[in-house]
Amino acid sequence: MEDIITKEVLFDYFSGRVSPLQKKSVETWLAEAGNREQYYQWLHEWELKHLQAGTNWQPAFDQLAQRVSLATSATPIRTPAGSVPVWERMSRGLGRVWAVAASVCVVVGLSGWLLRDQLLYRTEQTGFGEIKTLTLPDGSVVTLNANSSLRFPRVTFGPSIFGAGPRTVELTGEADFAVRHLPDHQRFVVQTPKGLVVTVLGTQFTVLSRERSTRVVLHSGRVALSLRQQQNRPSLTMRPGDLATLGPTGRLAIAPVRHPEALAAWKRHRFSFEQTSLREIADILHENYGLTVTIKDTQLASRTVSGSFPARDANEVLALVAELLQINYIRDNDRVLFTD
């Protein structure tokens, strides 16, 4: 009987493509000892071939490990009560009960304090070459570019009953914001590691906050810029089409750009270059795809590229740039060498 049941038959069976008689023979086959293991082995293989959605095991695992360590560190709560009535035990060893209670409090309090960041804030991250669009609790939409992270409070975010403080997010990397205007005019604030603070009512803009530079492009609406280190200075106001750059010396400069939308082209998996040098492209490749780029000589590094091009991954960008500049490149895992 078991001769009939092959991996192919079982795959067809999982996909719902077998006859009633075949199904019956699957059932008979399952009744035999040992075949249940084989069944799950094939089910697993079939599932891997037909995944319904991509999930990332790493964050789920970290969360679980934390949950388990919390549960085991708090086990003193479950000291066996035995058959002695609770009140009798309490009168006998009130001191010990208090000690247990206190240690539980300390354990819970300490782990709560250690995990306060996880409890109070949500962090969204993207890996190299990954672009993610998310909707914040207030309805604002954020598109995160590759290798970026956005942190915001879990609870106190969005329309507040108390008309309290602003909606604050912290950004590292690059993101495009479409901020929802709330009925109570609650402000939306983006903070960056370099101390730039962007304050908005309801508008669309792109923030870049990376090692190489910090800048803001405004697509519509109005935003105010200020620096955390210089709170007493009046904030600068941007108009649509403006590009604001935070220089290495900590100075803010605002100037209109001709194509503000080009600076958010990455959202549509496009790369937009305007007199962009190979040196800057190397930086972009490093930030977005984690590549370490070496350029053979300085003259090559200062050659520039202009235009807007679609590219889905690092290889496509590399091929594109090489083609445009008529140069060669060698890629070895995460290392790239450009030669003339």
Partner: peptide, 9 residues
């Protein structure tokens, strides 16, 4: 993990 999530889905 991934296959199990997919199967539960």
């Amino acid at each position: 993990y991934q296959a199990l999530c997919s199967h539960a889905l």
